[in-house]
Computed example of a mutant assay.
Amino acid sequence: MAFTAPGLTEDSAATVVKTLQERLSALNDLHLTLKHIHWNVVGTNFIGVHEMIDPQVELVRGYADTLAERIATMGASPQGTAKAIEDNRSWDDYSLGRDSVQAHLGALDLVYVGVIKSHRDAIETTGKIDPVTEDILIGQTAELEKFHWFVRAHLESYTGELSNAGATTEQEAAEKAR
């Protein structure tokens, strides 16, 4: 990097950029996954879930843009390609195609768990180095958690139990939620 944000060392900026690039790839993957779900949900409550997902897609795309611009602010080049998503991926590709609303929401619950946990890890990594980046990630995490709540509201019983509780894979979560 030829430059970085004032007050950050090159090593600190490199750590922040690496963390942000991982988050950028995860958010790019998430907005593609959300759009895939939007196109592939069927059955009862289709229209409500179909329309619930579009605002999530738009907000997540905006989050990706914010992180890409922060990377550029640090003097690095944000990578927004499909190859970058693949290179940075520590998760499996979304595994459901055309399926019921409940199946997709059961699987999406696990997707959000992974994204939110990783965002929280990034908050931890950047917090001591760059409070500006930490603040961006905190704000994004709050909204991601709200969307996660929207998803879980469809999976929750009146007693507070999730229909996909205990599932460790998207396929298992989908099966339990059906």
Rank of each mutant, 00 (worst) to 15 (best):
D65L: 01
L32W: 11
I37W: 02
Q79K: 07
N45K: 09
F46E: 02
R89S: 15
W91D: 03
E86Q: 12
G48E: 11
D87L: 15
V101F: 04
G48V: 13
G62L: 05
T44S: 00
S95F: 01
G80M: 08
A82Q: 12
E86D: 13
D54P: 08
R98A: 12
Y94P: 11
V57D: 00
E51I: 12
V57K: 03
N88D: 05
V60L: 07
N88C: 09
A72N: 10
L67E: 10
N45Y: 08
G43P: 14
D92M: 08
W39L: 02
G97R: 05
N88R: 02
A76Q: 04
H38L: 05
G80L: 09
W91S: 10
V60C: 10
N40W: 10
T44M: 14
V41Q: 02
T33M: 05
Y94S: 04
G48T: 07
E69P: 11
E51T: 12
A68E: 04
V101C: 08
D92K: 07
V42H: 09
E69Y: 05
G62E: 05
W91N: 06
F46N: 03
L67S: 05
V41N: 01
V41K: 03
D93C: 06
Y63D: 14
N40K: 07
D87G: 09
Q79E: 13
I71T: 03
N40D: 04
D99C: 01
G75W: 02
I53C: 14
E58A: 15
R89V: 13
L67Y: 00
V41R: 04
R70F: 04
I53V: 14
T66L: 05
I71A: 01
D93H: 11
V57F: 00
I71H: 00
A82S: 14
L34N: 01
D92L: 10
G62N: 01
V41W: 00
L32Y: 13
K83Q: 13
V60G: 08
S77A: 13
V60M: 12
D65G: 11
S90H: 08
S100T: 15
I53T: 01
H38C: 12
R61T: 12
S77F: 15
V41S: 02
A64F: 06
V42N: 00
G48W: 09
W39G: 05
L34E: 03
H36Q: 03
M52T: 10
P78R: 04
S77I: 13
S77L: 14
K83S: 11
N40F: 15
D92N: 11
N88K: 07
V42L: 07
G75S: 07
R70G: 06
N40V: 09
E58H: 15
L59T: 15
E69D: 07
G48P: 12
G97Y: 03
A64Q: 00
H36D: 07
H36I: 08
S95D: 02
G75N: 01
V101Y: 08
G43N: 11
Y94T: 00
Y63G: 10
V101P: 06
H38P: 02
T81P: 14
G62T: 02
L67C: 10
D87F: 14
S95R: 06
